[in-house]
Design a protein around this nucleic acid. Structure first.
Length: 855
RNA sequence: GCGAGCGUGGCGAAACUGGUAGACGCAAGGGACUUAAAAUCCCUCGACUUCGGUCAUGCGGGUUCGACCCCCGCCGCUCGCACCA
């Protein structure tokens, strides 16, 4: 009699296995390791917004698959989790609801930790920390002071977005159409003295480092960083004034160019409206002042910049061309950026589109100096600047040279004349880290009228945030706190005040991966622990951090290495950027969004419709979008756990799309995953050691090893969807094979359980126990692939005629092409098909294909 | 504008280095079991077809014995940067 199948119950099994792991403290990794090779898996730690969503879940499940499979493959796996806990939302909650930012944050952390634990992740919770804990940010202050000592931290005036109503600095993203996002006030540009980190010192190193990451980081991310740093090589040079020099630039006008080869094509000079020369003129010349004001008015949105007309103002000043001595007039122009290069350019309209637009408008000369090879003497430029390759003409000693050679020669001549030098410049700016905010890491500096800014002595760290603050008035609560900022100067003992700015939260996330290696260390980073575990072998997170976070972390790692705090300069050896979880949206006739739990979907022969359960109203099925509260298309992990079990949810978020792509959450999809969970259990549960084996067990052994190979490759190559597809197919093979017992079946089931374990760990543990295995599948070795056992004795060779598949033959594996050819030509079906035609050529690819060329 | 990526069934997708296009899942249709339902299982499922085949991986060419894959030219979508001299 067949045994009645027992249903697998995730509701009881999942908590049971989680309790087992917890009781065994199974995921704690000693800092010194256990002697196996190390593997550090890390997912970008979350901001404690209050709830874990499916996007988080997918991210952490991917990391968990890597962590669990690496553990099975014999590694000491470090897999920690923490909280990126400083930031603006906590202050907004304080303003809106009157709660303390700290209380809000810590209660969110508690809630999210519980939600995260439902997912059954193999995390070492003993290493958990939040960046808002003084135990963490105090260490950050310590290394900040070290960088200050080393000159990597400095202060300078910089222009910021200032909200005059809220009395605060706004990030660029917080300025909407020129107004503060919260107050609605017109944002002012204001100069503030701010703290900066010298990331530009590392610009070259950060670019060079990208090369070594080839293959382990997405090309897209490496390219984005390279573009962001924006290195360009060119010439920085000074043009002497013709006549009296303006006081703002007594030595001449300094410009930067990447096209020194086109110097003979210069027809005007341009300076930014903020350039010292422009500002000086605006002070005495009302027309110039009006023009500069006009330029400032221009919007900063993309569309506005794109459409903005190029406008200029002739200053009347003239400079002398370094090569041919002619006078060139100096203009103030709105399209020149004061922050890039020297804020001044030479205009060569023939070979730069912007310069050409400008020259045409103001009727300035357009002299082409480069022409494409093959163009005749009369080569000219009309409305489109020529930026392609070619050779120089109209250029005296540069005539006939190719562009690169001409650049080199022009630079050589300018250098020889002492008028300038070849220079490499960067788009990247130093990192402004000052924030006029409460909920951030205090900058550990004291300002003394006599001694200037003085670092807080290390033995006085951490500089803790005061708890008694109010948010009833705009501005930084630290600034108006009655006592906190008033201290004595550590150097002279005189009256002094604390710095009340806090650090950009990107600083907090720039070194947390190093702190995780020994989160209790007295020093910011334990050298021994960091040297053992870093770099992070596999880092996983959203592509939205491709530039800022990942660039800052690479910079800080280098800076801390140079300061002797750690050794590894490149923190993330491998990076994977995962796609989002998206979901359909549902809308009522009145435009209101409806959440999926309140929607009933019907499918009538392919025609889908939706209605709202609570009202019965018909709904419009809208776009499939990123899950968001505003569109109400969110699915909470808790619901999934309750309905289908964690394992089904874990499986589904990885099964339906490649991990780098977005995955659409569908109820049908999770149900499919839940069915698979049942099928695995049914096969394992149905195993009977006393039952007879199936007679053709060699076939099952082959399929087992093919599955081991495919799943192993899928897991290591981040093709989780393919790995899961192979697992589905393998379970079908096991099921259809027949025979409830036997060694081959036992091996197949044992391999299956270990292969599914990274994806559905709870199910795997239940199965492992059911199979009578010792201990936990968690500690079981990854199944080993044996190519000899996976190989078929025979292969099916498709037979193509002129490249089209026309039939197939079954032959012994490894047969030489000549033998295959003989068999094919003797085959009656082939003969019948070839009747009356001449075979011109036979292509045989061993064990793969046969192609007959007939004509 | 510059840079990158992607276009394959009704849908999500597979196809390793140029070698049987559509694995696996969803949806759909049919059937078995059942008093019935759920659950489960089985079959069909790119298009056309005179049932021999023919056509199919965005479009048009090319290279090759053979192309989703490589090359050239278009079209469409997505992302990043954007007046960066």
């Amino acid at each position: 009699m067949a045994k009645t199948p027992v249903r697998y119950e995730p509701k009881t099994a999942e908590p049971r296995q989680q309790a087992r792991w917890a009781a065994a403290d199974a995921f704690r990794m000693p800092t010194e390791g256990t002697g196996r090779p190390k593997y550090y898996v890390l997912e970008m730690f979350p901001y404690p917004s209050g709830a874990i969503h499916m996007g988080h879940a997918r991210n952490y499940v991917m990391g968990d698959v890597v962590a669990r499979s690496k553990r099975a493959q014999g590694f000491d796996v470090l897999h920690p989790m923490g909280w990126d806990a400083f930031g603006l939302p906590a202050e907004n909650a304080a303003i809106e609801r009157g709660v303390h930012p700290g209380d809000w944050t810590w209660s969110n952390i508690a809630a999210m930790r519980d939600q995260l634990k439902l997912l059954g992740l193999s995390l070492d919770w003993s290493r958990e920390f939040a960046t808002c804990d003084p135990a963490y940010y105090g260490k950050q202050q310590a290394w900040f002071l070290e960088l200050l000592k080393r000159g990597l931290v400095y202060r300078k005036d910089s222009v910021v977005n200032w909200d005059p109503v809220d009395n605060t600095v706004l990030a660029n993203e917080q300025v909407v159409d020129g107004r503060g996002w919260r107050s609605g006030a017109v944002v002012e540009k204001r100069k503030l003295n701010q703290w900066f980190l010298r990331i530009t010192d590392y610009a070259d190193d950060l670019i060079e480092g990208l090369k070594e990451l080839e293959g382990r980081w997405p090309d897209k991310v490496r390219l984005m960083q390279e573009n962001w740093i924006g290195r360009s090589k060119g010439l920085q040079m000074t043009w002497k004034w013709s006549g009296e020099a303006p006081a703002a630039a007594p030595d001449g006008l300094e410009i930067y160019t990447t096209r020194p080869d086109t110097l003979f094509g210069a027809s005007f000079m341009g300076v930014a409206p903020d350039h010292p020369v422009a500002r000086a003129i605006a002070q005495t010349n009302p027309d110039a002042a009006a023009f500069v004001a006009e330029c400032r008015k221009g919007g900063s949105t993309q569309a506005e910049i794109e459409q903005a007309e190029k406008i200029g103002f002739d200053t009347g000043l003239k400079v002398i061309h370094p090569f041919d001595g002619r006078e060139v007039s100096v203009w103030i122009a709105n399209f020149i950026l004061s922050e890039y290069g020297t804020g001044a350019i030479f205009g060569c309209p023939a070979h730069d589109q912007r310069d050409l637009d400008f020259a045409r408008k103001y009727r300035l000369p357009v002299v082409p100096v480069v022409r494409p090879d093959g163009a005749d003497e009369g080569f000219d430029v009309e409305t489109e600047a020529y930026v392609g390759p070619g050779h120089l003409f109209n250029s005296d000693f540069l005539n006939g040279l190719e562009i690169e050679a001409a650049k080199a020669e022009a630079i050589r001549r300018i250098e020889a004349a002492g008028a300038g030098q070849g220079a490499t410049i960067y788009r990247l700016r130093d990192w402004g880290v000052s924030r006029q905010r409460y909920w951030g890491c205090p900058i550990p500096v004291i300002h003394c009228a006599k001694c200037g800014p003085v670092g807080v002595p290390v033995d006085q760290l951490p500089v803790e945030l005061p708890r008694d603050v109010t948010f009833d008035t705009p501005g930084n609560p630290l600034d108006r706190h009655p006592t906190w900022k008033h201290v004595s100067c550590p150097t002279c003992g005189g009256e002094a005040v604390r710095e009340t700015d806090t650090l950009d939260t990107f600083v907090d996330s720039s070194w947390y991966f190093a702190r995780f290696t020994d989160p209790a260390a007295a020093e910011p980073i334990s050298r021994a622990a960091a040297d053992k575990w870093l770099p992070v072998d596999q880092y996983i997170g959203g592509v939205e951090h491709a530039v800022l976070h990942l660039l800052y972390a690479r910079f800080i790692s280098r800076a801390l290495s140079d300061a002797g705090l750690m050794s590894v300069r490149e923190p993330f050896a491998g990076l994977f950027t995962q796609g989002m979880v998206i979901h359909e949206t549902y809308r009522r006739a009145d435009g209101g969004w409806v959440e999926p739990t309140d929607v009933e979907l019907t499918n009538d022969a392919g025609k889908r419709s939706a209605r709202q359960l609570s009202t019965g109203e018909a709904l419009t099925i809208g776009d499939i979008e990123k899950m968001s509260k505003s569109k109400k298309n969110v699915v909470a992990p808790q619901e999934i756990v309750d309905t289908y079990g964690v394992d089904a949810g874990r499986l589904f978020v990885l099964s339906d799309s490649p991990p780098e792509r977005d995955v659409q959450w569908t109820p049908g999809g999770v149900e499919g995953a839940a069915r698979f969970v049942q099928r695995v259990w049914t096969e394992v549960d149905g195993f009977d050691p006393d039952a007879p084996a199936h007679e053709s067990d060699a076939a099952l052994v082959r399929e087992t090893h093919k599955a081991i190979k495919a799943v192993s490759e899928g897991v290591s190559g981040f093709r989780f969807n393919s790995a899961i597809a192979k697992l589905y197919a393998f379970v079908a093979v096991v099921r259809d094979h027949g025979g409830a017992g036997g060694a081959a079946r036992r091996q197949a089931l044992s391999a299956l359980v270990r292969l599914v374990a990274p994806f559905t760990p709870h199910l795997a543990e239940e199965c492992w126990t059911r199979l009578g295995e010792e201990g936990m599948v968690l500690d079981a070795p990854w199944p080993e692939f044996d190519p000899a056992l996976a190989a078929d004795d025979e292969v099916i060779l498709p037979i193509q005629v002129n490249g089209k598949r026309r039939g197939e033959i079954r032959v012994a594996r490894g047969l030489e092409p000549a033998e295959v050819e003989a068999i094919v030509m003797a085959d009656p079906d082939v003969q019948a098909r070839l009747e009356g035609q001449t075979v011109r050529k036979i292509v045989v690819v061993k064990d793969r294909i046969v192609n007959l060329v007939v004509g």
